[in-house]
Design a protein around this nucleic acid. Structure first.
Lengths: 198, 198
DNA sequence: GTCTATATGGCGATAGAC
DNA sequence: GTCTATCGCCATATAGAC
């Protein structure tokens, strides 16, 4: 059945995100998927290959949703605002996604160039062009576009990597944390925008 | 000899940072340290214990250097500037430190509260107090201090977690990357300060 | 403190019957 | 496509001689 493949993917995704790739065994994946161990290899050949399949799925999914915002032809202020909102909303659903992506990249640095899903995450060209154009037209302050793009994603993504730390330090419940990230949407876009304003 | 313990620590630290804790075996550590495998357990009882020893060392070291800047009584503008410079300089030396800390925290979320070295990293109280005082005195814009602190460390730390991505995307050599991070010092502090300025 | 030898179990992957 | 059985290897940790 086709269901088997899906069951393996679903189980492995949850375990990889939760415990980290190297702390999950193939037997554990098969058990959670309620599938015979051999079927894992029948469908995915190896654990490594299963990992990259899942990595691609997760990353393409997320990248698509945010990328088109940055590539639209909305005014820059609007764009930054929309981007922060969409990205933070996406990650409130799956906060561990950021740590997962970072860990896989750090785990296989030599494969990054060939993983176009990973490169698709870092999609600055059009946005950087727009920053230059707007600066030349005198509508925003001239800044290093690459630095600004990195700052934008840093402000959005990093707080998710230290979720546990933030919650413990401030005695946040899950709801408190979500509220904090909701408030972050305007914090991020107004910080970026106050920097660009003339 | 006391040297043995140090050799194990040095070898394990390098391997943990480079390959990730779960992709390094104890035999590999012993081999790199040129030490008999059993001595690892003689000195550190278990791999887990060795990990936490190293984590504590690395984190206390880094936290100390930056913490006192945030807790000095310099004016806020100066403080932010000094903090960005010191923190980025520290991490240019060991860029993988950030990913390492994130991965260990994510690996053992339940132990965070007891690891005061980890909590020492997140040291916002005095800085946040100062932000409130300055805002009341009308010298800076009133902002959510906790959000601002998170933004400050996000701008500094996140770029190190995606070092490989930044280098590949922009075809940076190691020197280019360092230059980029050097330029980042002023980028970060001027972004934060433009946000706080009245 | 340092060594050799080994216990004990988990890992990823595959062969081959059905 | 799905199963059982198993290979071969590596992991962490320890016992006990010196």
């Amino acid at each position: 059945m086709k269901k088997t493949k899906q069951k393996i993917l679903a189980a492995a995704t949850e375990l990889f995100l939760d415990k980290g790739v190297d702390r999950v065994g193939v037997r554990e994946i098969a058990a959670k998927a309620e599938v015979n161990l051999s079927l894992m290899n029948y469908y995915f050949q190896s654990k490594e290959n299963l990992l990259f399949t899942i990595f691609d799925m997760l990353v393409k999914d997320g990248a698509l949703q945010t990328r088109e915002i940055l590539e639209s032809n909305a005014p820059i202020e609007q764009k930054i605002n929309d981007y922060a909102i969409a990205y933070i909303d996406l990650l409130i659903e799956k906060p561990v996604l950021v740590s997962f992506v970072i860990s896989v990249i750090h785990r296989n640095p030599e494969k990054i160039k060939t993983m176009d899903s990973a490169m698709g995450l870092y999609n600055s060209e059009i946005f950087c062009e727009q920053l230059k154009t707007e600066a030349q037209a005198g509508r925003i302050k001239p800044v290093d576009p690459e630095q600004l793009f990195i700052s934008l994603i840093s402000l959005i993504l990093f707080p998710f990597t230290i979720r546990d730390l933030i919650m413990d330090k401030n005695s946040f419940s899950s709801k408190d944390y979500i509220k904090f990230m909701e408030e972050r949407k305007t914090h991020v876009s107004s910080m970026i925008y106050s920097f660009l304003k003339i």
